[in-house]
Design a protein around this nucleic acid. Sequence first.
DNA 1: GTCTATAGGCAGATAGAC
DNA 2: GTCTATCTGCCTATAGAC
Lengths: 207, 207
Amino acid sequence: MSGPASDTSQRILDIAEELAQKRGFNGFSYADIAERLTVTKASLHYHFRSKADLGCALIERYRDAFADSLRAIERDVDGAPSKLRRYVALYDVVMRQDRMCLCGMLAAEYATLPEPMQARLRGFFDANERWLARVLGGGRRAGELAFSESPRARAARLTSVLEGAMLVARVYGDGERFNSAARNALADLVTPAPASRAARRGGRRIA
Amino acid sequence: MSGPASDTSQRILDIAEELAQKRGFNGFSYADIAERLTVTKASLHYHFRSKADLGCALIERYRDAFADSLRAIERDVDGAPSKLRRYVALYDVVMRQDRMCLCGMLAAEYATLPEPMQARLRGFFDANERWLARVLGGGRRAGELAFSESPRARAARLTSVLEGAMLVARVYGDGERFNSAARNALADLVTPAPASRAARRGGRRIA
DNA sequence: GTCTATAGGCAGATAGAC
DNA sequence: GTCTATCTGCCTATAGAC
């Protein structure tokens, strides 16, 4: 959309993103960023007039990167189960860096955030769940997935278990805790017998 | 354990708990409590020397109240499905007050918390999941519940979906979002045909 | 774009009177 | 137990030189 932001702006966002994901948006200050970038706080205000502006830029960049990842999944893999595994892998990358999903973290701080950040946060979850709902609905029609709610409700529930698993796993510093929850959440969603799926597609019926 | 804390201490904790659940532990100050209680900040420091002390007291009281609720469930209802429904209702009460689970909120802020609070937070989740794992394991042995992981892993996953659903539902200000996720999470756990359960207990076999 | 300097406010915390 | 007064430090943010 907008032109290529300056390299310094990007590095500020990189540092702010890590801090926000590890400590929360209220858990870091311009001084923390300035120290790691070895510039002064005043310089940061040149790039992002206020912390609210920085926060908005943070969400927008995260949202765009996430959207790119979802497009890459669509491009690279077929089948809802594979797409979901790739989707979960996006969260796993974050966990391995000892971070929380940026938007999950901001969700906790929601009541304290400036309104423009709140609006962008809702936008993130909306887009995320629209994509998931589409994959889930398609997978169910193809017989690859099984669930009883609406695709949108199932998407919300899947988002919940992934965000919640990250949240609690960080208390234990245990990424495997997240992986176990994610793996089993997918297993509950994918129809048990892949062989029978292939057979059904061919019109054959299996008890 | 300790003697009855003063009435003022309890009221301080009531206010701090609400603020912590709505805004996070880093999202409120002694000034916020002082204003609502119409006392001075200095008075608060008489009851809780430091904010870290207040935070520890907050978790301990929450943990004890939660443990009481779990004992009440054991006392009042039979059967794992009913126990789980009552368990979920504990979360629902919190959601209806537009609050996040205290310990879920603190989990997000974990990296910024003083170590004594971190230790108590782990203790909360440990106790919580030990209880859940026991109910889940018992329910499976009784044929009331079905799941493939260990009871402990399933307990962790159930905790995750409930905490995550609260987290995201607050962004939308939509308690029904939480309810939908919770209801369907339980449905996935409870064996489909109660009639067949009763029959199986009697030794009869159903296809 | 980055700096120095500083404003103005709020944080958690303490001393000591009552 | 609660108060007034105060301390120290950090916060976001701005002015203006370079």
